[in-house]
């Protein structure tokens, strides 16, 4: 919980705002956090069920037998 609060406060306090008019580069498709979300769903599933780890995506280990 402390770590979580630390990260939130750090994010809130340490950055100056970038105005909308200066976000031309950030609006590009290649600058999206995930530019291909549907493809990522399957990729996340493969990783979640073929590896011992989860997290950082939607797949959390449920919904599939995946032998």
């Amino acid at each position: 919980m402390k770590t979580l609060t630390f990260f939130l406060l750090l994010s809130l306090s340490s950055c100056a705002n970038v105005p909308q008019i200066d976000r031309g580069l950030l609006a590009k498709r290649i600058m999206q956090v995930d530019p291909h979300p549907e493809e990522t769903i399957f990729q996340d599933e493969v990783h979640a069920f073929r590896e011992g780890a989860i997290g950082g995506g939607k797949a959390v280990g449920g919904g599939c037998g995946c032998n």
Binding site: N17, G24, I54, G55, V60, G61, G62
Partner: peptide, 29 residues
């Protein structure tokens, strides 16, 4: 088999060229 999970994320525009995302997941099976 019951699974519940909680995801928390925070994203911040740092500059006109930079964006960061921090996330945490807790899952209980």
């Amino acid at each position: 088999r019951d699974i519940y999970a909680i995801n928390l994320s925070a994203s911040q525009i740092l500059t006109r060229k930079d964006l960061i995302v921090l996330g945490t997941t807790y899952a209980n099976s």
